[in-house]
């Protein structure tokens, strides 16, 4: 079974739902580790910096996005790591997943973006297309 799972999150409701599914799968296996990946988006760097008072606040807003996910994992006693990547969300997740050779990637069908595509978010789309291991998309 899966020993290491990559869970890509952005703090949206979809990523929380993906978390719940990830936890279900992980709890089936004895020594499974979930790597929670959050990408700090290059294209939002300017907006986020201008709209925050200093680095501490920036870090706090990002922590807040991952916090409910962490809490859920903790409550189910799942072993997990948090990994912050920087770059464009899609390619960053794909590179990381392929480089670290994860056995499974779990991601929500869409994220926080306001411009919603019809069925699948663009990041989820890229991940499905380019990640080499199986991908679980959570609706």
């Amino acid at each position: 079974m899966y020993k290491n799972i990559l869970l890509a999150v952005d703090g949206s409701d979809h990523s929380l739902r993906a978390t719940k599914e990830a936890v279900k799968i992980a709890s089936l296996v004895g020594d499974c580790t979930i790597e929670v990946v959050y990408v700090v988006d290059y294209s939002k760097a300017k907006d986020e910096v201008i709209h925050s008072m200093g680095k501490e606040e920036l870090e706090l807003t990002r922590r807040k996005k991952v916090l409910p996910i962490e809490e859920h994992m903790k409550s189910k006693n799942i072993t997990y790591n948090i990994k912050i990547l920087r770059g464009e969300p899609g390619p960053s997740i794909v590179d990381y997943a392929n480089k670290e050779s994860f056995q499974l990637v779990i991601i929500g069908s869409r994220g926080l973006n306001t411009l919603q595509e019809m069925v699948l978010g663009s990041v989820s789309h890229k991940v499905v297309k380019r990640v080499k291991c199986p991908v679980l998309i959570v609706k």
């Binding site: 700090v40 290059y42 760097a45 986020e48 910096v49 680095k55 920036l58 912050i84 920087r86």
Partner: peptide, 9 residues
């Protein structure tokens, strides 16, 4: 500089 700091961590 702050933006570059943030982008590169």
């Amino acid at each position: 500089a702050t933006i570059v700091d943030d982008m590169t961590g």
